[in-house]
Design a protein around this nucleic acid. Sequence first.
DNA 1: CTGTTAGCGCCTTCAT
DNA 2: ATGAAGGCGCTAACAG
Lengths: 333, 333
Amino acid sequence: MEKQAITIYDVASEAKVSMATVSRVVNGNPNVKAATRRRVLDVIDRLDYRPNAVARGLASKKTTTVGVIIPDVTNMFYSSLARGIDDVASMYKYNIILANSDENNQKEVQVVNTLLAKQVDGLIYMGRSISDELRSEFSRSKTPVVLAGSVDPDEQLASVNIDYVAAVKGATKQLLDAGNKKVALVTGPLTEPLSGKYRLRGYKQALDEAGIAYDESLVFETEYSYQAGLAVFKQIQKTGATAALVSDDEMAVGVLNAALDAGVQVPDDFQIISSNNTKLTQMTRPQLTSLDQPLYDIGAVAMRLLTKLMNKEGIDEITVRLGFDITQRNTTK
Amino acid sequence: MEKQAITIYDVASEAKVSMATVSRVVNGNPNVKAATRRRVLDVIDRLDYRPNAVARGLASKKTTTVGVIIPDVTNMFYSSLARGIDDVASMYKYNIILANSDENNQKEVQVVNTLLAKQVDGLIYMGRSISDELRSEFSRSKTPVVLAGSVDPDEQLASVNIDYVAAVKGATKQLLDAGNKKVALVTGPLTEPLSGKYRLRGYKQALDEAGIAYDESLVFETEYSYQAGLAVFKQIQKTGATAALVSDDEMAVGVLNAALDAGVQVPDDFQIISSNNTKLTQMTRPQLTSLDQPLYDIGAVAMRLLTKLMNKEGIDEITVRLGFDITQRNTTK
DNA sequence: CTGTTAGCGCCTTCAT
DNA sequence: ATGAAGGCGCTAACAG
């Protein structure tokens, strides 16, 4: 593949300077006389010279690309984060290598390895839990890592997210305050810290404060998918719950549609609060009330944080928590 | 960034062979005695050696990464394509550099340039139209390019898509056959070949065959967004149209919701056929009837085609057209 | 089957 | 302000 015949040498000889000088102007090194700089620049675009980033990467040990592990681009929650990441990345002249992991530990480890082999300058990880193996890959490499939209229970890894306990607590409280005695919590496997540790804790706290006993049968562990949401509704219904806090938008749309399809009036007979406030929440009828996590911002801030880490700048806080809100729509009243 | 101290030399000396031999075993070259191979392999994982892909790329002139230009990852149409691309890419050991373009010509050119500077082995372009400048960037680089989910009017560039004329014609015909006299076509700017050339042609052909005169006022050019769909409905209503063929799912959800919000019965008083059959179409109530383009497959096949191109294998057809269908749901009857 | 030797294209001291 | 020279880590002939 002889993509680009012309190299820094061609430019140098054409401009009658040494390649060092060409390198300098290309890299904006001030130690070049204005006249020669102009001459070089001139040759550069006359020859349509384009620095070879691979060679540059080898010599400088920087690739200006970061690896991004994403469970599934097709999921709006993650693609929103990804968009924030990419925008900030390009703002700082970085590119993103995007790799889908399907939350599969093996794939993740495998992907992280090829990413490190490609000498990415940093890594952003999205996903609900980090396997020990993955964590050890992270720690033995000196490449900075930041988690976007998820938490590290040990707070060892940098991460940006929201206060999940408080968020879930707030949403649960709203549902409780609205008079619902039985509020279902629909979430992922409790073995994941996010669901099992944070969300569940927030849920229990709200229950506690309302003086309502925790009822295990009101907690539903499922897959984060539309189908799963659709399927879980009838089980929720059996418990007599009159409201549900659902941890994912697609899932929530599933729950909502199942309710509607079953002839249940929403929000009159059943209330729903979703969790991600993606575009989806506005597309349903009735529109979904939802926790509002600033997804784009989480991605953006995560990337920004990563740039600092890559730059070895001092970071005061390794974990940044962004604010959240609850956007009231029509599945609550 | 001294990420990986150990190099092929370390492995070589530790295993008491030359670096060439190490290189051979790493690259699966058969010319290595089984015994030495085992010994080298042993040292490799004892030292936790990981080949530096950048150096490899410089020496071999192959980076095993391809650039992917996407308008917006957050759009399900494109993220579905992207998912297909990534899956096949990883199947062939390639990684993807994903760059959002917002369909902005300037950004596109800029991004393609940095991608080429990074020596990607190939490029996949998604987007509705290719500016002349971009096309010229493509042609003067020897890097193979394939368009995913869009057409090249000149058929110069490799591409994979569906027969848009036939698809739109078929959908329009269905609406016409159902008794609708006035069928609206909601699409993007007619200046884009996809809308102006292909979709419009299909639409007209169906009209023709049905013996109905083409009425320009039934064609709506808008942005491909939920909001735009929401907004365009009342204009459609003014024309007295009783059905619409909408070129994007988010847009279609907008049209549907606007109709619903206006108290219009769907499909009794107004029918809708959407175009991409993404998950979204199943999430609305009523569910959207939609053209079914095999988005994931388009992405997958595009990537597969690109591997062939990168491999300099002979290609018989530079443009591959996949089959399509119309998935009947509840916005038609 | 294995080792030697050139590069790949660029960055980066170190001189001048 | 500019040039010379030595890598960066690996692949790829070319010998043996």
